[in-house]
């Protein structure tokens, strides 16, 4: 997995609440057997009309936000389907950080497996970052995971929380499976006692 240390880039505002994973990557793009190449279809039905032409007023089609690396989004971002294609599409487009007041559980987990940092902040701070993001190409934000801070375009700093284990994995680009494999003896022991205790499993 790609490491996440610091990220400096334009933040795009998406104030809509309940942005679901069907919006992030519609189902017609789930028929892939690869993890890559989904960035071109990110937010497809919001970004392009039925003929494939760009919808002008969609935020990621505006000149200032075409290279956005951060999204500042409304409540409950990533709700709905468990499709990991959603974080794959975000990462492939170049978005490595999403900031909101809340995230849906499965999407939140999926982000950490793909080098994307989802940040939960109180409403007032999301509002401030949303205002900053609306300043377009001037809205360059710096996210520093080590110090758990976001620096806005006006130099102000906001702190955020992140679970220590997840932070450690992101900072070092660690693969969960490799880490769990190191606990193989614990799994073996669990299975051995389990086969006696619950043989019907």
């Amino acid at each position: 997995m790609e490491k996440f240390t610091t990220l400096e880039g334009v933040a795009a505002p998406m104030p809509l609440v309940n942005i679901d994973t069907d919006m992030i990557i519609p189902k017609q793009f789930l028929k892939t057997i690869k993890r890559t190449g989904l960035g071109k279809n990110l937010f497809d039905e919001m970004r392009f009309d039925a003929d494939g032409n760009e919808i002008e007023d969609f935020v990621l089609n505006m000149a200032a936000y075409r290279d956005a690396k951060i999204l500042v989004a409304g409540d409950n971002f990533g709700c709905g389907s468990s499709r990991e294609h959603a974080p794959w599409a975000l990462a492939d487009f170049g978005i490595r950080c999403v900031i909101s007041t809340s995230f849906a559980d499965i999407f939140f987990n999926n982000c950490f497996k793909n080098g994307i940092l989802p940040i939960v902040l109180p409403q007032s701070e999301v509002d401030k970052l949303m205002d900053d993001a609306q300043r377009g190409a001037n809205a360059v934000v710096t996210v520093d995971l080590e110090s758990q801070t976001i620096k806005g375009p006006d130099g102000g700093t906001i702190s955020f929380d992140v679970e220590p284990f997840r932070k450690h994995c992101l900072l070092n680009g660690l693969d969960d499976i490799g880490l769990t494999m190191q606990k193989a003896a614990s799994i073996d022991a669990f299975e051995a006692q389990y086969e006696t205790a619950a043989p019907w499993i």
Binding site: S82, P87, N110, K113
Partner: peptide, 15 residues
């Protein structure tokens, strides 16, 4: 529900 990375994790480790 789980994501695909977790599917791989469960396939490999049953945890």
């Amino acid at each position: 529900g789980i994501g695909t990375s977790e599917v791989e994790h469960v396939l490999a480790t049953q945890t």
